[in-house]
């Protein structure tokens, strides 16, 4: 039902790298799970609305107002970042890389 190549392609989309043996094992395990999932096809869902969430009354968003955070807490969060430059999070370039791809 699911091939080793499919597993590798999905893993790449999920930004997880698997060795060849890992993909093979994963394909075998997913196969048996997907075989179990096949029971879903037997359910008669003709005209049934999907239930997207457990809260049926709708969510209750708060006003979109910025609330001041404890400055010490903010400092701690910045300090916990792996790479920073001044108070900014530093990450490898994204756009520059795309030009070469």
């Amino acid at each position: 039902m699911i091939s080793k190549e499919q597993v590798q392609a999905i893993a790449e989309l999920s930004r997880i790298s698997l060795t060849s043996e890992e993909s093979e094992r994963m394909a075998r395990e997913l196969d048996s799970i997907l075989e179990y999932f096949a029971v879903l096809a037997e359910a008669d869902t003709e005209g049934v609305e999907p239930m997207t969430h457990a809260v049926l009354t709708g969510s209750d968003p708060r006003e979109d107002v910025a609330e001041p955070e404890d400055p010490e807490r903010v400092e701690r969060m910045i300090k916990a970042m792996p790479e920073t430059e001044r108070r900014y999070l530093r990450v490898p370039g994204v756009l520059e890389r795309m030009k070469h791809d």
């Binding site: 879903l40 359910a43 869902t45 049934v48 609305e49 999907p50 239930m51």
Partner: peptide, 11 residues
């Protein structure tokens, strides 16, 4: 899979 499962959830 996903859509079908959500309908089963309603059932």
């Amino acid at each position: 899979y996903y859509l079908k499962a959500q309908k089963v959830r309603t059932l």
